[in-house]
Simulated scan of single mutants.
Amino acid sequence: MTTFDKLFFHFFQYYKSKKSKKANDIATFYVSFLQCSLLLLLGVFFSGFFKQMNVQTMSASKAWILFVLVVIFIYFKNWMQYGGRKRKIRNVKMLKNKKLDYNIWVLWFLPVVVLGLTLVLFQAL
């Protein structure tokens, strides 16, 4: 199981007791949001790196369009991966492992921190 799988099931188990019908949607949104924010951080980092190296790879508008397309792909990939039968099988495997003891507020703050780092890197360009 990957780190994102573990985070998904932590969110799923946490919100299943509170909002049972929306637990899967909330957990899928969180994992997708975290992956997209990490992708944005990497994109801004490599944009600055290539700018310092004087490499012209693609225009900014094409990069943003590519980012939006990848975000849509990530969301649908997570929706397919964590929906239905696969989620149930992985949930059983996850229940056998020890329960994660992360604070839910710290986990919600993690993508915000990544977006803050992205903003700092973007301003440095």
Rank of each mutant, 00 (worst) to 15 (best):
residue 87 R to M: 13
residue 27 A to M: 00
residue 79 W to L: 14
residue 92 V to W: 06
residue 27 A to L: 02
residue 15 Y to F: 15
residue 2 T to L: 04
residue 79 W to C: 15
residue 98 K to C: 03
residue 118 T to W: 07
residue 73 F to E: 00
residue 54 N to M: 06
residue 86 K to L: 08
residue 19 K to D: 13
residue 40 L to F: 09
residue 98 K to P: 07
residue 61 S to G: 03
residue 91 N to K: 09
residue 97 N to R: 07
residue 11 F to D: 09
residue 106 V to C: 05
residue 58 M to Y: 07
residue 88 K to D: 03
residue 19 K to Y: 13
residue 123 Q to R: 15
residue 103 N to G: 05
residue 100 L to Q: 01
residue 49 F to E: 14
residue 69 L to C: 00
residue 9 F to C: 03
residue 45 F to K: 10
residue 9 F to N: 01
residue 54 N to R: 09
residue 120 V to K: 13
residue 94 M to P: 00
residue 11 F to L: 08
residue 2 T to D: 15
residue 39 L to A: 13
residue 61 S to Q: 00
residue 118 T to E: 08
residue 70 V to C: 09
residue 19 K to E: 08
residue 27 A to V: 08
residue 111 P to W: 12
residue 49 F to N: 02
residue 53 M to T: 03
residue 105 W to Y: 12
residue 105 W to S: 11
residue 103 N to Y: 12
residue 41 L to W: 10
residue 76 F to E: 04
residue 6 K to H: 10
residue 40 L to T: 06
residue 118 T to A: 13
residue 119 L to K: 12
residue 16 K to T: 02
residue 53 M to P: 02
residue 102 Y to R: 04
residue 4 F to L: 07
residue 120 V to T: 14
residue 14 Y to T: 03
residue 20 S to V: 07
residue 15 Y to W: 15
residue 30 Y to R: 07
residue 12 F to V: 10
residue 123 Q to C: 15
residue 46 F to C: 13
residue 84 G to M: 04
residue 10 H to F: 13
residue 60 A to W: 07
residue 40 L to P: 04
residue 116 G to H: 00
residue 5 D to T: 11
residue 90 R to W: 12
residue 43 G to K: 13
residue 8 F to N: 01
residue 51 K to A: 05
residue 26 I to E: 06
residue 74 I to P: 08
